[in-house]
Structures are given as structure tokens and as C-alpha cells.
């Protein structure tokens, strides 16, 4: 990520220690992950030791050090989705995409992740694709779900 872009994000919050999570989230929103060089730049810019920046980046589930695909699928594995077969939806996606949870397809089209409850429990099992929640899923509905994403 260009230094000027990072500067702009940091400036928006101020180089306060308490803003580190928000800054990393904003960077990730643009880059889809946190490249090592970016973290090093943020560390210098904010005068926060790299070891601390790295701890933050690895502690929170929302942050990723691995590049992600164009579309992100989060399968909900909250309790309500679990008892209604959320793990089967995840299995089906793993099979259809040929990747395991946490991985990205070779063509960089999809990254498959799981999430602990998106709060849409009454419509479970659900999956979130690029921020849009899809409810009342079944294994059979999975192929139709993916076909519109390029």
C-alpha cells in the first residue's frame, strides 16, 4: 500500500495508540489483508513497536496477514446455525471450491472463512458474502449462491 494512503488513514484518527485497531481495519478494508511492509510502516509512523502492531494484527479475528480473494465468504457457525447444519454448508463450500476453511481459491475468486455468529440466528444456517447475509441455506442452494460472483 502506498505510504500516502496510509498517512491519510493515520491522519484521520491521529497517531494515538488507541486508534491502532481502527487504522489496521481501514487499511485492511482497502487491501483486503495486512501486508508486512504496511505493518512496518504503520509501526514507524505511529511510533508503536512492531512487536505490538504484530500482536494486534494476529489477536483479532477480523485482521488477516494472508492475502484474500476478490470475494469473501463467511459461513456462520453460531449455535443456532450449528444445530441447523451450518457445518454442512461449510463442508459443501469446501468441496465445491476445493479449498479448506481459511484458504483462498487459486484463481483468487473466493476466500472461505467461518465466523462465530452474525446475529441472524432466526434464519440459519446463514453465510455472508462480501457483507451481504444470505439466510435459510441448504447444501443444495450453495451452487446457486456462488454463480453470480466473478
Amino acid at each position: 500500500m502506498e505510504a500516502s494512503k496510509i498517512d491519510r488513514i493515520v491522519r484521520q484518527y491521529g497517531a494515538r495508540e488507541s486508534a491502532i485497531l481502527a487504522i489496521l481495519q481501514d487499511i485492511q478494508a482497502e487491501e483486503k489483508y495486512l501486508p508486512r511492509e504496511t505493518l512496518e510502516y504503520v509501526s514507524q509512523k505511529m511510533r508503536i513497536p512492531m512487536v505490538h502492531v504484530f500482536r494486534i494484527a494476529t489477536f483479532y479475528n477480523a485482521l488477516s496477514l494472508k492475502p484474500r480473494g476478490r470475494h469473501k465468504i463467511d459461513v456462520c457457525l453460531g449455535t443456532a446455525c450449528h444445530v441447523r447444519g451450518g457445518d454442512k454448508i461449510l463442508d459443501k463450500l469446501e468441496r465445491d471450491l476445493g479449498i479448506s476453511v481459511g484458504e483462498t481459491t487459486k484463481d483468487k475468486r473466493f476466500t472461505l472463512e467461518s465466523v462465530h455468529c452474525v446475529g441472524c440466528c432466526s434464519l440459519g444456517p446463514v453465510a455472508v458474502i462480501d457483507g451481504d447475509v444470505h439466510g435459510r441455506l441448504s447444501q443444495e442452494k450453495v451452487p446457486g449462491l456462488l454463480k453470480d460472483f466473478k
Binding site: 495508540e17 485497531l21 481502527a22 494486534i56 483479532y60 479475528n61 485482521l63
Partner: peptide, 23 residues
């Protein structure tokens, strides 16, 4: 905005998270 960590619902972890520390 939280970072997707369940433990941050605990009061002291939540406060640590706001301070910019790990939760």
C-alpha cells in the same frame, strides 16, 4: 469498532481493546 474477538465482551478486555492493547 471491535476486532472480532469474543473475549472483548469481558469488561477489562474491552477496556484494554479501546486503549489500543490486545483485548
Amino acid at each position: 469498532r471491535g476486532g472480532g474477538a469474543f473475549v472483548c465482551g469481558e469488561s477489562t478486555a474491552l477496556m484494554a481493546s479501546i486503549e489500543g492493547k490486545v483485548g
